[in-house]
Nucleic acid binder design. Structure first.
Length: 863
RNA sequence: GCGGGCGUGGCGAAACGGUAGACGCAGCGGAUUCAAAAUCCGCCGUAGCAAUACGUGUCGGUUCGAGUCCGACCGCCCGCACCA
């Protein structure tokens, strides 16, 4: 019987229309069912979706559709991370307004996403560039300001003197601006900061509770926060050598145990003591200036040698009034960390060792590794930072490192210098406050006003939003807001005098730090969230996105959750309960004879004698097949989702994305793989059609093995989807399809069992290939939509067999199989095993010394 | 340099410490066809006619039994990078 081919192109839009008309994926906040919030990282509207989006959103959609079938009230929204630089770049290059460009891109991408058949609640769509979104962000800025979570302070930035703009670190290439090519300067600008460091301890501690996050991401965050326990030590400075007004130097150390190995103290070039000392020492001032210049060339830092300059200042060792240490200014000390000053113990710190070896300050080992003789243990080029026993350290000798740290802290805490203790225990963090100021147009305006009389004044809440003016031009360098006289001018809210608006806009990471909360009630006008609604949905049960956001986006969102909690906008601890980071989509690269990259759709692959060769479609010239790389425009190894959907359909693209590789690993996009997926689509359709046709006849129950296979597949697939192991689920589905196919081959397609197995097959593919599943559902004569159908129940009884086949090993090598009753006791199994011919042969007449029976799994005979 | 991860057929990959290679891709053989495409059936780690032997980066260990656990090494990938 001839079955018509499945026509995805015709079918897919039809079902999308049906879902949309019935508002199947519209979620209601008052739905009484248990909630499930699945979210994929929302896209930047760059113009068109790419394969990475297809993979990301397919995974989320499988979870959403599966959870819906399991009876959850699923929230699965979509929006746009719509502020950012590319819109301004487009404005400069193409003379199109950022807003116009952005919304045109959104329209294109929305259409593309809809063609994928994603079960999204489009009624909750948001765009961060819309005043109805960012006005709440401005309100929260004011909330945070009141709560003391916002700071205004100076910070070093990369300044491009030609474009007159601040550059992100990754926009500085070899010390030059990526666009202008101008030498980038380090400038001190007054900037707005969110005080994320206020939450450093909690952000660190609560990582332990995120057990549904990848360990890797937690580790990256932990390293980024960089908690360290140490000691703040105050060194007395010799007045004879020290500039007036200075008498103490505070240093931070995590190795107070090595205090007797100290050879010098060092401060950062921009440390106040360095500046004070430089005032009367021109050479020192010149050295400091040199350090500052070296700082600008980012790349140079890697290779920079440890340089220092003796200030002439002498400090007194806290345990010995007669022991003086020189104070250096050194280029490797960071003002931003700790106190910007250290004591150097060269024997046990590589940087300090490099430093003293250059300046001839010597070293004294104070920790002796186990098994080494303290009398002869010496350090030359390599510092020792391992465990050991204290030596050369007076009262610390013989102690462990931990004991010595404790002893030093205990003694110095008890002593005082002036009215303060000589030392204090201090927990330090590497994490810095989050600078949110951007000297850019296309971002959320920071709602403050600068008044000559009153200083910085917040914009009154009733005046929000501060909207971006639309009549701006990008024909000059710099921020258009700075040039917009009319927009800038505003009366001071306090004294009514003429004042000036803040022209900095917010980092776009701010926009994406709370969108997941906004989705819970996206139309709410008078507040960012309804705390009750937000708390009913949050945390996000499953968040899915790229590993590239492992640190910043996720950390900022965690900060925002805490800050919003302080402003009574949410009541939760952590925003994302489950996190999954998916791998990239990669593809072969191709180059023609001239070395130009060639796009995959311009390449024809031929296989000859087992080797693959590529040719240009138009010219038929040979093309070199290169390495497999992340899809990128520069290497032209991209595949356009639109093309794939047009030629194979969305279901094929979705299926391939799920089938080949584990989801956290990169997936290689291949033409053969897509065709394989497409063949499977056709095969399912054929199986279903044949079963549908045959099924009209007999009411025969049918064979048990197929029932078992169907329910085994069902049980396995649901477990796999719960664990996001889509590739395994796909394999199980193939197995079931194979089993049904064999049944049809045997002419038993008319049985009730075949129909049941086929119905289960359709339900298993429904989260992955929803359009095909609907078409099959209807062909099988099922009522309603498969997208609305409840997930089938596993019949547990079918998962256990009456007779089981156990593999038999002799001395660890497999020699035979025995089939026994499932509930056979060990004696019976042993008897069956030892009488087996192949087992006897393998035992070569030796007696069985021991028989290990692992219930339901295996038997091992030790002979 | 520090931290983390990963090494399994021609390829993507499976495998609660228990039959290594499920499932897919590619390939090979056959059926169908005037022929092809599509489809269906079979084979498909290496060596061997076979019985069998050997096989999860290398070397060692634990165990009745190791791809899986432990130690050392080799290779690749990622993150951080003067954080005291």
């Amino acid at each position: 019987m001839a079955v018509e081919r499945y026509n995805a192109k015709e079918t897919e839009p039809r079902w999308q229309e049906v879902w949309s008309e019935r508002e199947l994926f519209r979620t209601h906040n008052d739905d009484p069912r248990p909630k499930y919030y699945v979210l994929e990282m929302f896209p930047y509207p760059s113009g068109r979706i790419h394969m990475g989006h297809v993979r990301n959103y397919t995974m989320g959609d499988v979870v959403a559709r599966y959870k819906r079938a399991r009876g959850f009230n699923v929230l699965h929204p979509m929006g746009w991370d719509a502020f950012g630089m590319p819109a301004e770049n487009a404005a400069m290059q193409n003379k199109v307004h950022p807003k116009e460009w952005t919304y045109a891109n959104i329209a294109t991408m929305r259409k593309q996403l809809k063609s994928m058949g994603l079960s999204l609640d489009w009624s909750r769509e948001i765009a961060t560039c819309d005043p109805s979104y960012y006005k709440h962000q401005q309100r929260m800025f004011l909330d945070f300001l009141e709560a003391g979570l916002v700071a205004r302070k100076t910070a070093k930035v990369n300044w491009d003197p030609v474009d007159q703009t601040v550059l992100a670190n990754e926009q500085v290439i070899d010390g030059r601006g990526w666009r202008s090519g101008a030498l980038v300067e380090q400038r001190e600008l007054t900037q707005w900061f969110f005080k994320i460091t206020d939450f450093a301890a909690d952000l660190d501690a609560r990582l332990d509770t995120l057990d549904r996050w990848p360990e890797k991401v937690r580790l990256m965050q932990r390293n980024w926060i960089g908690r360290s326990e140490g000691l703040l030590v105050r060194f007395a400075l010799d007045p004879a050598t020290t500039p007036a007004g200075e008498d103490t130097l505070e240093i931070y150390t995590t190795r107070p145990d090595t205090l007797f190995g100290a050879k010098f103290l060092a401060v950062a070039p921009d440390h106040p003591l360095a500046k004070a000392a430089a005032a009367k020492a021109p050479e020192l001032a010149a050295f400091i200036e040199e350090c500052r210049r070296m700082g600008t060339a980012q790349e140079a830092i890697d290779k920079a040698e440890k340089l220092g300059f003796d200030t002439g200042i002498r400090a007194t060792h806290p345990f010995d009034p007669d022991w003086q240490l020189p104070v250096y200014v050194a280029n490797f000390i960071l003002m931003e960390y700790g106190t910007g000053a250290i004591f150097g113990c060269p024997a046990h710190d590589q940087r300090d060792l490099d430093f003293v070896n250059r300046y001839g300050l010597g070293n004294t080992p104070v920790v002796c590794p186990p098994g080494q003789d303290p009398a002869t243990f010496a350090i030359t080029d390599e510092a020792y930072d391992g465990e050991g026993t204290l030596i050369n350290s007076r009262f610390l000798d013989g102690m462990t490192i931990a004991a010595a740290k404790e002893e030093v802290a205990r003694r110095l805490e008890a002593e005082t210098r002036g009215n303060r203790p000589v030392a204090e225990r201090k927990v330090n963090y590497r994490l810095r406050d989050w600078g949110i100021s951007r000297q850019r147009y296309w971002g959320c305006p920071i709602p403050v006003i600068h008044c000559a009389n009153c200083g910085v004044v917040p914009v009154p809440r009733e005046d929000l939003p501060v909207t971006l003016p639309e009549d701006v031009s990008f024909d000059q360098p710099g921020n258009p807001l700075d040039r917009h006289a009319e927009w800038l001018k505003v009366p001071c809210p306090t004294c009514r005098a003429e004042a000036r608006r803040e022209t900095d806009t917010m980092d776009t990471f701010v926009d994406s730090s709370w969108y997941f909360a906004r989705f819970t009630d996206p139309k709410l006008d008078d507040a960012p969230t309804d705390p009750e609604v937000a708390d009913s949905w949050l945390p996000v049960d499953q968040y899915i996105g790229g590993i590239e956001h492992a640190i910043l986006h996720l950390l900022y969102s965690r900060f925002f959750t805490r800050a919003m909690r302080r402003a009574d906008l949410v009541g939760l601890d952590e925003p994302f309960d489950g996190l999954f980071t998916q791998g990239m989509v990669v593809h072969e690269t191709y180059r023609d004879r001239a070395g130009n990259w060639v796009q995959p759709n311009e390449v024809r692959i031929e296989t000859e004698a087992g080797s693959r060769r590529a040719f240009h479609v138009k010219t038929s010239e040979p093309v070199e097949i290169g390495s497999i790389e992340k899809m990128s425009k520069s290497k032209k190894n991209t595949v356009d989702p639109d093309d794939i959907i047009a030629s194979y359909g969305a279901d094929t693209a979705r299926w391939f994305m799920l089938s080949d590789s584990p989801p956290e690993r990169d997936v290689i996009w291949t033409e053969e793989g897509v065709q394989g997926a497409w063949r499977f689509v056709q095969r399912v359709w054929r199986l279903v059609s044949e079963v549908a046709e045959a099924g009209k006849g007999s009411g025969d129950v049918g064979p048990l093995p197929l029932r078992r296979a169907a329910h085994r597949a069902l049980a396995a697939v649901q477990d796999d989807i719960e664990d996001l192991r889509f590739n395994r689920a796909v394999a199980r589905i193939y197995e079931l399809a194979n089993a049904i196919g064999a049944e049809l081959q045997a002419g038993k397609g008319a049985s009730a069992t075949a129909r049941e197995a086929t119905r289960i097959l359709v339900q298993l593919i429904a989260p992955m290939m929803p359009h095909l599943a609907e078409e099959c559902w209807r062909a099988l004569g099922q009522k309603g939509l498969v997208a609305e159908a409840a997930w089938p129940e596993v019949e547990r009884d079918l998962l256990v067999e009456d007779m089981i086949t156990l593999p038999v090993q002799v001395n660890g090598k497999k020699r035979a199989d025995v089939t026994v009753a499932r509930d056979a006791d060990n004696e019976a199994i042993e008897a069956a095993v030892l009488s087996h011919e192949a087992v006897k042969r393998a035992m070569e007449g030796r007696p069985a010394r021991k028989v290990i029976v692992v219930p339901q799994r295996i038997v091992n005979v030790v002979a």
